[in-house]
Nucleic acid binder design. Structure first.
Lengths: 202, 202, 202, 202
DNA sequence: AATGAATGAGACTTCATTCAT
DNA sequence: CATGAATGAAGTCTCATTCAT
């Protein structure tokens, strides 16, 4: 938390450092209190600068929030692009592969919890993020359906929404990495096999 | 504008009618704009009464909101109690039975869309509703696991959360009853059988 | 200044009284400091009410200003309509008649000096008022030219602008009624006869 | 962007060039938006320098404005000194001579429209300019009255104010030089002969 | 000669809430 | 039962101005 000689912020100009500081504290406050209950005055107090300084770096409170959202979403989209499962995968590896995808997402969500809170869990932005996410995942699933990996009797978007719903409900408890890994396997099992003991695919 | 003899509100006292009217318009405004963007002045304007009147019937804006939440949640809990699947059900009926549960929930959510919006989709209350719902459903699932219907290698709460996630993502599109029925079957399939073509239960 | 039993304000409702009080003090402050230098906080302090009260009666500072402008202008237009000189007037009365018009205008401008200040002398509204006034007067002059009273080799609007200019420059010193009357005659002479000793009309 | 050898600013020191550039853009912005709506940040942005630089050359926004006012007024005073009509002028040339004075003023006002806007038409400075102008012109008129050119039954200052009023109202439309010339003659006629057809000087 | 960065002071406006009637 | 009127407390944002370099 304290800037050391090799702090990644130490080579930035003063302004860039202030910008970064404000962003950090804005994220913290938004995550803690939500968009509506966060006051610009709180953010600048936490960052140790005056209110006008905030407006040197952000057009408005809303824009500061949008910036954070945008960053979170573009990182998230980049991640989902890496999760496509290629067609030739052996059946025996399938579950592990799906679990890995879950795990990568959980890890991503745990990586910057404040940004995650803002971008994925909190209104007003979370709904859009999830809608986007469903589309990105649906893109992957559609390909995976083509490749014969997943059932085709249900629309890709619907399957994707199911995944998003799981992520939404599960991802609030990602204490340590091992727990996230376990959770990933549970999710993979649920998603791939369903929950019914008597299920038969035919 | 004039209450007729058989108006459902006509047998209420004047005060009770005003109360009901305020509640109705409060729900509409909260659903339309969200808690934070709804102003008491909007509600009373829509209801055609003065601001102090609002405070005759509700302690505060927050309490009015809480009232609506509470009502929604208790109705929802009552519903989930009816969805428990008894142990002896034949395998052949299982999917239909699960689909029926989904359908009942979708119908419930479609019944009073404003209240649903407030209680299930909108912050700040929706998270608590969903957490509660997950618990109520987990209670059912735990029993159903005991009865040998569902897999036991995943905790009931986790399965329940998966269901809640599905509901959350799916339930935004419940135009007409038939579509909700179709959606219920898709959900039942996804939930019971999973999405993987190569899945084998063992 | 003190409300007596028969004060014109005493029969108004409380709200109307507050409204009037705010208007009065708004006019005073605008007149004293100009639009830009007048703060809503000054106005309400002078009126002895809280800031939100201001916004019960005016949409914004700008609207309060506009209200005053509008009132001033419509009163002024009404006045100018009464100043048209009918065709058959005997030559011997002409100067007196023109002087009377000047006098009525000077009296009007002196009647409510604060409103005059705002509407006639101060930016940002005064230019529009004067442009309007020139048009109203030009309407009269055009008729008077038709009636053979005034020279026709110069456009009515130009003559009107000349009158407006005189008013603008003269009207700042309207101490007492007699002085205004004297000034009116000077203006009438200047306007009707010009300033050149050697002038001959032909 | 680069100063060429014969650029009128090229022989100035760098600082003087910056000063001139700032003045030019300050005048443009003040003329465009008025004193109150012009922001220092606008001026420096237009001039392509930083905000502190502004304060190297002007004590404050107000002082920058005052500088421009002062320059405009002293140029204007110099002009009025040249407009005095000498006593012996033949009657037949009188109107042309007065028209010439109007024309010179209109040309002066058209010469640097931005400065004119600021110094002659816009608040808060225009009233003082006009009051000064009335005095300068009154000085001339008093002499001209002494010389038997103008009527003496009206105070010189009042006649001067009439002239200023005419200038104020007329001078907003000085498109091209010929139009200004025509306008000058109309003004001369109005001022010298008045507008009444039946006027007789006695 | 010039600037990147920062700020003090304050403006307007909003809104949930409450008196007094 | 209902309301016209009023407000405390805040919140966002702006702008002229200055420090340190």
């Amino acid at each position: 938390m304290k800037a050391t000689m090799h702090d990644p912020e130490s080579c930035l100009t003063k302004g860039a450092k202030t910008h970064a500081k404000l962003r950090r504290h804005a994220a913290a406050e938004f995550a803690r209190l939500g968009y509506h209950n966060t006051k610009v005055s709180d953010i600048v107090k936490a960052a140790g600068v005056s209110q006008p300084t905030f407006y040197c770096y952000f057009e408005s409170k809303e824009m500061a929030y949008e910036d954070l959202m945008t960053e979170f979403r573009s990182r998230f989209e980049a991640l989902t692009r890496t999760l496509l499962i290629e067609g030739g995968i052996p059946t025996s590896q399938m579950l592990d592969r799906v679990a890995l995808s879950f795990q990568k997402i959980f890890d991503f969500l745990a990586e910057d919890p404040e940004l995650t809170q803002i971008g994925f869990f909190q209104p007003p932005g979370c709904s859009i993020t999830k809608a986007n996410l469903a589309n990105w995942i649906a893109r992957n699933i559609a390909n995976e359906q083509q490749a014969g990996l997943f059932r085709r009797d249900i629309a890709a978007l619907q399957l994707a929404q199911c995944v998003v719903g799981m992520l939404d409900q599960m991802a609030r408890l990602p204490a340590d990495a091992q727990k996230r890994k376990d959770l990933s396997f549970d999710c993979a099992h649920m998603l791939c096999e369903g929950i019914w003991l008597g299920a038969k695919k035919g």
